[in-house]
Design a binder for these strands. Structure first.
Lengths: 219, 219
DNA sequence: TTAATTATTTAGCTTTGTCTAAATTTTAAT
DNA sequence: ATTAAAATTTAGACAAAGCTAAATAATTAA
C-alpha cells in the first residue's frame, strides 16, 4: 500500500486517539491534526476506500487491522528516530518530536530495521513510550497514571507527552526527566495545583495542566 | 526561504546540470527529473519569482547565488545521509542513493550539523563526491576524468555516478570500488569496449557506457 | 417532544505540481 | 534566406489536500 504523508499522519492520529473500540470523532481528529472537520471527512472517504479505516458517515472512524498495522509502522519509525536523535546526536528530548515527524515518513523497512539494530533494538523511546518491533508487537506499557491522578506519595516519572515542546523545555528546566523520582507533598483543589518534591531539592508547585502530561508509577 | 520538496529537487537538478555559466535547457531538466518540458517551464516561473534562478523564456535557466546556496545545502544533506547509511548502517553504496533522496528533504541545520559531527565531518561521500561544509564550501575535487577518456595506463577509481543502482551493483560484483587500482590494457574502438585489469585478477572487458560513469585519476 | 445547539457532511473554491495538445520561437539544413 | 525540425511555452485539465460557507444530522436541553 502506497500512502501519502498526509494519509500516514491521519492513520497515526487515529491510532493515537482510539481508545478501546470507541470510534474517533471527526472533530477530535481535526483538532489533533490542526485542520478542519470538513477536511477530515474528505480524508475519511479516501482512507475507507483504501480499507485502512471503517467509516460510515456520522458514525466516526476506527482502524481496520490493516490500518492498525500501518499505524504501528509509523509509530515504530517515529520512536526509533527519536532514539537516534537523542542517543547518537545528543538532542534533548524536547527537540526531537518535530524532527521525528519528518523522518518517520521515509518508508524503508530495511532502513528502519538497520536503524533499530544500530541503536541496540531499544524498546522505549526518549519519552518512555514503547517502540513496536518489526512485527508491530509492543511491550505493553507498565501501569502508569497521570501525575494529577496519582494516589501514591512516592513516584517515578515513566513517560511524558511529547506533543508540546514548551512543556518538555519546562520540565527540562525543572530537572524532571524519565526516571526522576518525586513525592507528592500536597494537592490543592482550590487552585488546581500540585506541590511536589524531588530528592535533594526544595519542593515546587506545578499546575494540573502540566501534571496531567506527566505519567508516573508508584516507586 | 521555505521550499517544497519539488522545488528543492529542481534546484538540485539545475545545480547538477549546470556546467560553468551555461544555462540549463528546459528539455535537459525535464529529462533529468523524469518529467515533461511543460512542467519545467511552470516551475521555472515559480523559482524565478523566488529569486533562486535567472530565467527568461526560451533562454534556459541558471542558478542565482541564492539558488546555488540552496543547492549546496541539499547536496550536503544528501551526501551526509549517504555517509550515515554506509558507515553506520552498513548499506552498500548502490543502495543509498534513493534513501538519501528522501532524507535530504528533512530541513534542519542543527540536525545536519550534528549528523556531520557524528560522522566525523567527512569530506567525501561513499561515491567519492565532495561534501559541502556548513558554509557551502567544498573541497575542490582532484582532477579526474571518466575512465573511457583516461590516457594514463595506471589509474585509481575516485568516484562513481550514483545515479544508477544497476551500475553500482555491477561494479560491486566486479569488485570495483573507491580507491580500486586498475590498468587499462586496451581500448577497442571498433566495439566501444575497454579491457582493464585489477591487481591479482584476470583482466575484464567493460563497455564505454559503463566506463564513462567511472571517474579515475592517474596513480 | 420540540427547539436549540453541536457535530458532521456537502458543495464549491484554492494551491501545488503535474499532464496533453496546440501554438510559438529558435535552430539547423538546404 | 527560406523552410523544416526541434525546443519551448501557453492553454486548459486533473488529482491531492486543504479551506469556507451552507446544509443536514445528531444530541442536548427545556
Amino acid at each position: 500500500m502506497n500512502l501519502t504523508v498526509a494519509e500516514e499522519n491521519y492513520i497515526k492520529a487515529i491510532y493515537k486517539l482510539q481508545e478501546g473500540d470507541q470510534a474517533v470523532t471527526t472533530n477530535a481528529l481535526a483538532y489533533e491534526l490542526d485542520t478542519k472537520p470538513a477536511s477530515v471527512t474528505d480524508m475519511a472517504k479516501k482512507l475507507k476506500e483504501k480499507k485502512l479505516i471503517d467509516y460510515e458517515k456520522y458514525q466516526g472512524i476506527t482502524l481496520t487491522p490493516e490500518g492498525r498495522k500501518t499505524a504501528l509502522q509509523v509509530v515504530r519509525r517515529h520512536r526509533l528516530w527519536e532514539c537516534f536523535l537523542v542517543d547518537k546526536l545528543s538532542f534533548s528530548w524536547e527537540e526531537v518530536h518535530e524532527l521525528a515527524e519528518e523522518l518517520e515518513h521515509v518508508r524503508s523497512e530495511k532502513l528502519i530495521n538497520r536503524l533499530s539494530d544500530f541503536l541496540g533494538n531499544p524498546v522505549i523511546d526518549p519519552h518512555g513510550d514503547p517502540i513496536p518491533d518489526a512485527h508491530g508487537r509492543m511491550a505493553k506499557p507498565r501501569p502508569q497514571t497521570p501525575l494529577d491522578q496519582a494516589n501514591a506519595k512516592r513516584l517515578v516519572v515513566t513517560a511524558v507527552s511529547d506533543q508540546s515542546t514548551a512543556l518538555l523545555a519546562f520540565l527540562n528546566a525543572k530537572g524532571i526527566k524519565l526516571g526522576t523520582q518525586l513525592e507528592i507533598v500536597a494537592h490543592y483543589e482550590f487552585d488546581n495545583s500540585i506541590e511536589i518534591k524531588m530528592k535533594h531539592l526544595s519542593s515546587l508547585t506545578i499546575s494540573e495542566q502540566v501534571a496531567k502530561n506527566i505519567m508516573v508509577r508508584p516507586l
